[in-house]
Design a protein around this nucleic acid. Structure first.
Lengths: 145, 145
DNA sequence: CGGTATCCATCCTGATACTG
DNA sequence: CAGTATCAGGATGGATACCG
């Protein structure tokens, strides 16, 4: 009917963000830089001690996409600061929208997930206690990161 | 200064969406179902022939999270329809916000990326033609899905 | 039609250790 | 301090083939 085979841009599926922004750390880095520049080690604190390798690759990709600027002050010990660009700052409102959705709907999603999991895998003790109770559950559902 | 070590919820980093929603296909499935229920095979068309295995696991996870409902009509040949729930529909406005950001800023992001890549890796012919031109570029930048 | 079953290629992330 | 180098593990996405 109205499902167009070319409905989605192959470069940017669903008109969504280039995937980098949807990765594990980018949004968090943007939030960490919201109130001003931060240093490499400062960023690692709220990011639950993400390893330097991962933080480096995240920051490099963000720099490449014009979301942050890296400033190195020639000194010993080294001093490097990361700051949001205007483009990076523009993500703040979008991230706020995501957080608003989570605040409003995440509990419902989590409840649905829990109900689904419990229906598919009833407590063994209870299931065993009710001999003829039909289960009708579907197979293993597991997924979920 | 104000970077709180517990700034981010470990269950839902950055207050962002549970990761499933950020996966490769979920947002697209939501958009495909915007105007009414669709059948399994119908969904594969705009999704660029995603393999049945991947579409199945995406839909199962969405069902688990209460984003879609699956309805099977007992008939031959089989007839199964997927429809958005209220929760799934609530994602439409969020996805619209994402698309709006892309429309407004993606060109800028892509331009920054291209400029960065060209600066790091100038055309060999041009570079070779200018003997003493300093390059100063940083190392290999590659990433980018 | 609407899936499953296998196998496979990455990709991403992380732990650990070392350096200018 | 701000990274880089190496190695390893797991999850994701996909190709291909088969089934009720």
């Amino acid at each position: 009917m109205d499902l167009d085979p070319e409905m989605f841009d192959p470069v940017c599926p669903s008109g969504a963000l280039p995937f980098q922004i949807g990765d594990k750390w980018t949004a968090m880095v943007v939030l960490c830089l919201e109130h001003g520049p931060r240093r490499f080690t400062e960023l690692r604190v709220p990011l639950r001690a993400v390893t330097p390798k991962v933080l480096t690759s995240t920051l490099r990709a963000m720099e490449r996409d014009g979301l942050v600027v890296r400033t190195a002050y020639p000194a010993h010990p080294p001093h490097v600061e990361y700051a949001l660009t205007g483009l990076g700052r523009s993500l703040l409102t979008l991230i706020a929208a995501v957080r608003a959705w989570s605040g409003a709907h995440l509990p419902e999603l989590l409840a649905a997930r829990q109900a689904h999991d419990e229906a598919a895998m009833p407590l063994p003790a209870v299931a065993a206690a009710q001999p003829a109770t039909r289960v009708s559950g579907s197979g293993p559902t597991g997924r979920g990161r």
